[in-house]
Amino acid sequence: MYPASFRYHRPSGLHHALELLSRHKADAAILAGGQSLVPRMNLRQATPENIVDLNRIADLSKLAVVNDVLEIGAMVRHQSFCCEAAIGFLSLPSGFAELLGRMADTIGNLPIRLRGTIGGSLANASPKAQWALLSFLLDADIVIENAGGTRCERYTQFVKGDGRTTLKPDDLITNVRIKVPPAEWRYGFAQLAPQPNRPASAFALVAITLEDARVRDCRIAIGACTPVPCRLHALEDWLSGRRASVSGSDDLVEIAAAAVRQQGGESQPYIEHLAVVATTRAIAQAVEC
């Protein structure tokens, strides 16, 4: 229950942090919210020799909208999205702001959300992470810095598998960039678990626009049941142009099931069932909201 010994570094600025990472490379671990890393350290599943604590780097906790792009500092805590006082000033479209709050609200529990960060979550690339699902749906970019410079990657390209990413040992995610969606977008988010009180085994996130009671555009992503989140393009194509009332139909269930099966992430029929239920629920929410 006691972590292995480590050297603790508390850089006060980004430059210092990058320098430490460049010096220690694979011997260092980045401590953001610590809600995933520290449990692993307590079990000695992670035994870094150096810990670089980002919690005193104020620059990493900024939130802003710049040229219609929402820029989220890597150290912004999950709970910030649940809190009007923290994100109200951004004047995001209300549906979008509400979605961020709803998704954040399903992460762990309050003490976990108050510490856990969006950057940490995206770096861990867990298939069960809400922000990964969001990033896949909205084509988020992440800004990665190291002592040598800065680069920007599309999150869908950055994630290579369950927990695997393009991050190098001296890289640090500093920012997440999401193009602010148009106000007319409507959202649905549903998540399901095989046992109560457990992280999702399947979740789905949907964004649609409606025109004359028909679906004009739509995006559908599922996650948790696949090693990385994925878009259900076949279902998106099928749904586009159809009457919104299709959301309760048997046809939708069948097409959704086929689209989920195509992803083939989970061979368990029950998980597949959950993914279909989550997808159809999320679509229904988006239509009805």
Binding site: N42, L110, R115
Partner: peptide, 27 residues
């Protein structure tokens, strides 16, 4: 539990509840 699951260690840090088992004292 030392894993942030049970909350027996919850303390208030700067006004908000935090899992004491997942925060190094030095932090």
């Amino acid at each position: 539990c030392g894993q942030g699951d049970c909350g027996s260690c919850t303390v208030s840090v700067d006004g908000v509840p935090i899992r004491g088992c997942l925060l190094f004292a030095v932090q």
